[in-house]
Design a protein around this nucleic acid. Structure first.
Lengths: 111, 111
DNA sequence: TGCCGAGTTGCGAAAATCTTCAACTCGAAC
DNA sequence: GTTCGAGTTGAAGATTTTCGCAACTCGGCA
């Protein structure tokens, strides 16, 4: 691999780091959906949604195919849903803890 | 919450979307570390590292404290390690699959 | 062939992010 | 109090991302 692993990983996360892209992925967790549906639920201009979808496609996070005249999108792998779940969990912990960890860590030092 | 949930989630991922920040977090998975160590392993200027650490701090992804004259950093919660692990797994799947999913999805449609 | 709806792409301006340099703060030792 | 090492912060320039508009492509149908 010509790209360092940590850089590829950073890129993966960066791709998820956008509100519209997150919403798309969350909607796709329930299964494949046509662009039309995404557009109806996300409140963004068609061209903008298309650009965000392109970002997700280039990163191989989603795939697209045509079905019955509509362009459909789907998660490229269920692991994407796992990542979203992990993000959701962290968000919960991070928003509640905020302190108490610091004191605990201080206490643990071998001094 | 004044900030929509999907936006907070996007922000969480965006924070991880930087090579230096990813490397920091991976190093911190093994336990708290002084800035000095991070600096030795990451090949970035001190001020730059400090800025990236500040980003992680503001997002409550890491915490910092002083120990024996050195500033230490640590993951704010073990869940951060889970998120990194999920990212690692996706990266593997995404880099290998790339196709085969499309055909499968086509076959599943109810037509 | 020509048209229409569904999506996509190119482009330019605005906004956010990244990186470096210099200046600054803080704690420890003298 | 002064000095030194460790780390942080502020600011400016360069790079990247974002977003809306307009133009374009593609498939289906008259």
């Amino acid at each position: 691999m010509s790209v360092p692993l940590y850089q590829a990983k950073a890129e993966m996360f960066r791709v998820l780091g956008h509100p519209v892209r997150i919403r798309v992925l969350e909607l796709l967790q329930a299964g494949p959906r046509p662009v039309r549906d995404l557009l109806a639920e996300i409140d963004v201009e068609p061209s903008n949604l298309s650009q965000q979808l392109a970002v997700l496609r280039r990163a191989n996070v989603v795939i697209s195919f045509r079905d019955d005249g509509l362009v459909m999108y789907a998660l490229s792998t269920p692991a994407v849903a796992d990542l979203l779940a992990a993000g959701r969990r962290i968000l919960g912990e991070v928003l509640t803890d905020r302190d108490g960890l610091l004191a605990e860590l201080r206490a643990h030092r071998p001094g």
